[in-house]
Structures are given as C-alpha cells and as structure tokens.
C-alpha cells in the first residue's frame, strides 16, 4: 500500500535521462532510452535479465561511458568523468559491493569517508542508516557472518549513508529470503515516502507493482512502455476480474451477475464464478449487494487486477523471467 508522499516540488526532475545509447561491440545494450524521476517518486525499471537495466543505471550513475545521450542529476550534467553530481546519488549495485571481512559499521565508515563524512556526523549517519535497514544490532559484526538478506540490507545502507536525493537500486532482492525481501521493500518504500527519488530495477513484477509510482518496461535495450501500473494495464486494454464463490449456487449467481451494469463477461469455472469488469474495486459494493438481495450465500470473493506480467507478455511476447 502506498503512503502519501511528503512533497513533489514540480521543479527539476532529480534524474533525467535523454536518448541514452550504449553498444558493446555490435550489440546495442541500451537503445535510445529516455526517462525521468521526480523528487519522492519511485520509478521501476522492469525487464528480464539482459534487457539493459544494469547498463542503463550504470550510465545513470556515471559508471559507464555512454555512446550518446544525456544524463542530468538535479539539473547537473553527469558523465563518467563527473564528480560533483555523484554526491546526489546513492548507488546500490547488484553485486554485494562490501568488504566481507570488515564489520557493517567499518564498511559504512569507509563509504561515508568517500562522501566526505567524518567524525560524529559520520557515526550518527552509520547508526541511523543501520537502523533504517534493521541492522543496528549487528553493526559490529563482520559482513561475512551475515545471511544473504542481511548482506543485501547492508548493501543498501552503504548507498543511503550520505542522504542522497536519488537512490539507485539494481535488483536489490535477488536471492533474498522473503523476510529480508519484505524488509528491503519496506525500507525503500519509507525512503520514497520521505521524499527520496528512487530508481529501482527488478525482474520481479510484484516488487514493481508494490513499490513503484511509475514503471518503465524495458526489453532489448528499449523502454517499450512507461506509466503507472494502471496506465500500463489500460494500454493493454485488460479488464479486472472478480472471483466469487457462492456455495452450491454458482449457476444462479452467474445469472444474477450477468445482469449487473458494466459487467462484460461472466464465466463459470467449477464452483467459482469469474466476472470480467472494468475498475472492479469500485464495483464491488454493487456485486455484493446483488448477491445478498438474491439470497446467494457468498463464501469468498477476490479481485484480480491485470498485472504487469500480463502487460510485459503482451508487449514483448515473452515472460518476465525468460
């Protein structure tokens, strides 16, 4: 569930990428990609492995030289030689880019020093950041003693330490247990709600749906669709589905529901009824009311909205995990 944003200034985007192109030998890894992220916005880059997500964010973080295009961070142009705009970026790479033999706090101390933090300010930020990712009680333990999920959270902490205005996370939940994944997603959600712009790449559709205000679907180095989840689904023209169980009376239930306004189709699947209807959540009261009026015993009800997986499949002809 999204919480209300703190602010959105409406001024310059925090990150603005225009017409990025990057080739490796004859293969175009990034082919004319453009997008922007505003303050407090979480932008998801959704695509399968090898789609060009990591190359795009490597360019966006000034790590990789682009063939053409432009990257601006808070209005300042960024390229692989830039120094100052990098202060505004917190980069969380896909690799566990920490020293395993050092403690979490020593790792953060090192990265803090790179960003010019020192003394009490640095120590304070280390504690705050470890608190954010839920590792404060393990601050002095070696990274190599952490579980996979804890390592990932420490990895995120290193990107947050200097309070960047843009947090770039490259598939931060790959290979993570469900508990840690949830902790990571909650932390990212919190940061976004506090006003941090977030660029989040993933090939997990559920994560993009849960976290992101807008999603860019990337495939073969190009953004093939972009927008809010709703906008993307509407592009596809798919309808929401309501799955209903009325014990032993599904035939009667189907008849009643077919007569409801807005219902496009009613399908009987075993003991269940599936109703295809636009904006299903808004229509729920009238569906329930109709069933009750006709004395049909409602035992379960589920709204199934068309998801990004379906959108991706429709746009690319491939599954996200292909």
């Amino acid at each position: 569930m999204k919480i209300e944003k703190v602010s959105g200034t409406g001024s310059l985007p925090v990150l603005e990428c225009s017409h990025l192109v990057k080739s490796f030998a004859s293969r175009k890894a990034v082919n004319d990609i453009s997008f922007h992220i505003d303050q407090g916005e979480c932008y998801g880059m959704l695509g399968p492995n090898g789609a060009g997500k990591t190359t795009t964010i490597s360019i966006a973080c000034g790590l990789l030289q682009k063939d053409s295009g432009e990257v601006k961070v808070n209005g300042k142009e960024l390229n692989h030689k830039s120094i100052l705009p990098k202060r505004d970026i917190g980069y969380v790479p896909q690799d566990l880019a920490l020293y395993p033999e050092l403690s979490a706090s020593d790792n953060l101390r090192f990265f803090g020093k790179l960003y010019g933090l020192s003394g009490r300010d640095l120590e304070g930020r280390i504690n705050e950041t470890l608190e954010t990712v839920g590792l404060i009680d393990r601050r002095d333990d070696r990274i190599e003693s952490f579980s996979g999920g804890m390592k990932r959270r420490a990895n995120i902490a290193a990107g947050l330490l200097h309070k960047p205005s843009l947090l770039v996370l490259d598939e931060p939940t790959v290979g993570v247990d469900p508990q840690s994944r949830n902790a990571i997603l909650e932390a990212v959600q919190l940061l976004s709600n506090e006003g941090m712009a977030v660029l989040y790449t993933t090939h997990y559709m559920e994560e993009a749906e849960r976290l992101c205000d807008r999603v860019g679907i990337i495939d073969k180095g190009q953004i093939v669709a972009e927008g809010t989840r709703r906008e993307l689904v509407e592009q596809l023209g798919s309808l929401d589905r309501i799955r209903i169980s009325v014990s032993g009376m599904h035939r009667e239930g189907a008849e009643v529901l077919r007569k409801l306004q807005g219902v496009q189709e009613v399908i009987e699947i075993g003991d269940e009824i599936e109703v295809l209807i636009p904006q299903a959540r808004l229509k729920l009261p009238s569906v329930i009311e109709a069933l009750i009026e006709n004395h049909l015993p409602l035992t379960s009800l589920e709204v199934v909205e068309p998801n990004l997986e379906a959108v991706f499949l429709a746009l690319t002809g491939r599954e996200l995990r292909d």
Binding site: D95, L96, P100, L114
Partner: peptide, 17 residues
C-alpha cells in the same frame, strides 16, 4: 576479490576520481 565483489564500481559511483 574486491574487484569481483564490485566494490570498485561502488567506489567510483561516489565522487571519486
């Protein structure tokens, strides 16, 4: 090891030449 872990990428993502 440092190279393989991607630490250098992270270092260069900081304002470091």
């Amino acid at each position: 090891d440092t190279r393989k872990l991607g630490v250098f990428s992270r270092i260069l993502a900081a304002p470091v030449r």
